[in-house]
Amino acid sequence: MIEDDPALRRVLVRGLEAADFQIVWAVHDGASALGRVAAVAARPDALVLDLGLPDMDGMDVVSALRDRGVGAPVLVLTARDALPDRLRCFARGADDYLTKPFAFAELAARLDVLVRRRRSDAGTDTDTDTGAIAIALDPLRFRLGSGGTAVPLSPTEYRLLATLLVRRGEVVRRETLVCSAWPAGAIVRENTLDSYVTRLRRALRVAAVDARLDTVRGIGYRLH
């Protein structure tokens, strides 16, 4: 569980434990969560995540988890109820989304579905050794790294790359990339997105990572 409000965090832990969930860890910020999942043995069956964290946006935590090969489903629990926020979370790798205030019974039911689905898919677990993916993203400093090389990214560049990385090998539509990287209501022209993709290609070359960013004409982009 990743929730910065200590009172709510205690309530959630007590309530979920009373509903027969085992809380393996509960932390207040994104850095602590990423540190916990660095140890494969500590990886949970599912995560409950707030978006308004003190050190980073929860969406960036989702991206970083997926970058590290953590396939556990993520249930976002947040006060943000706007549709663009939901769409951005799903584009970045979240599995479910519940807004505050919420009914505790609904939270438990949604979490139960995610955990059961996770365990039924255990034979094809998506957790991977992070060494298999040459790209490493730092959500605290907005950097792209590989080995000893670190390339700074703007927040928009970071979110574009994170969205592409979460869906590596898939064609990601232009509309999805715009939704995930720019705030709701932003006017983003086609050549603006293309310009950012050009910057990302340059950053990938500088970082010398094992990746290629292709254009799928008229649709979007694919990260190999």
Rank of each mutant, 00 (worst) to 15 (best):
E3Y: 10
P6A: 12
R9I: 04
V11A: 15
V11E: 14
G15A: 15
D20C: 12
I23C: 10
W25A: 13
S32R: 14
L34N: 01
G35D: 11
A42I: 00
A42L: 11
P44H: 10
P44F: 09
A46I: 07
V48E: 07
L49M: 14
G52H: 15
D57S: 14
D60F: 09
V62D: 01
S63D: 05
S63A: 15
R66N: 01
L75P: 04
L77C: 12
D81W: 00
A82N: 08
R86S: 08
L87P: 03
C89I: 09
D95Y: 08
Y97I: 11
L98I: 13
A103T: 13
A108E: 09
A108K: 11
R110F: 10
L111I: 13
L114A: 11
L114T: 06
G123V: 10
D129Q: 08
G131N: 11
A132Q: 14
L137I: 08
D138M: 06
R141H: 14
R141P: 00
L144T: 03
L144M: 05
G145L: 02
S146N: 15
T149C: 09
L153G: 01
L153W: 02
L153V: 05
T156Y: 02
E157Y: 03
E157G: 08
L161E: 00
A162H: 09
T163E: 00
L165E: 02
V166P: 00
R173L: 08
R174S: 12
P183Q: 06
G185R: 05
G185I: 01
A186S: 15
I187E: 15
T192L: 07
L193T: 00
Y196M: 12
V197H: 00
R199V: 04
R201P: 08
A203M: 04
R205V: 13
R205M: 12
A208Y: 02
V209D: 02
D210H: 12
V216L: 04
R217K: 15
R217P: 02
G218Y: 06
G218P: 03
L223A: 02
H224I: 06
